[in-house]
Amino acid sequence: MGDSLVRMQMTIPPIEGIEDVPVAAVEALAAKMGFKPDRVQDIVQALTEACVNAIIYSESDADVEVIMLARQNSLILEVRDQGVGFEPDEVPAPNFELISELGVKNGGFGIHMIKALVDQLEIESSNKGTVVRMSTFLSKPEKQS
């Protein structure tokens, strides 16, 4: 077994609220892997955001896939949807000065939040769908000299 990859996958329909199911599974997995409770919560929150985005922006009944890739030192979560996609580089960072003056009328800061909660975030998006890949490490990989 050793450091072999454990892969699990869950498919959910784009129904509001159903993200709780894969989130509960990932919460159990992250705790079992040895992540501390605050890191487990970070992972839970990041996955919740990614699933909610996939569900909210889904324009069909196409399923959302949640893929869990666990190794001894890392947990990689992928949320794959078949929505219309977006341009990740065009999502602005929140302007806290402006927000403090005007408030928030629509939406949130899902991508900003995910980025702050996980160690690595990669987003691949096209008009055929989006893959959000979130990586969290149990300990930081040692630098090669």
Binding site: D20, Q45, T48, E49, V52, I99, S100, E101, L102, G103, V104, K105, G107, G108, F109, G110, H112, M113
Partner: peptide, 17 residues
């Protein structure tokens, strides 16, 4: 039991108002 960024955004909006 659960929050999402939209919910937090609403709380921020209320704070500003």
């Amino acid at each position: 039991t659960k929050i999402v960024s939209r919910g937090v955004g609403a709380a921020i909006d209320i704070a500003v108002q």
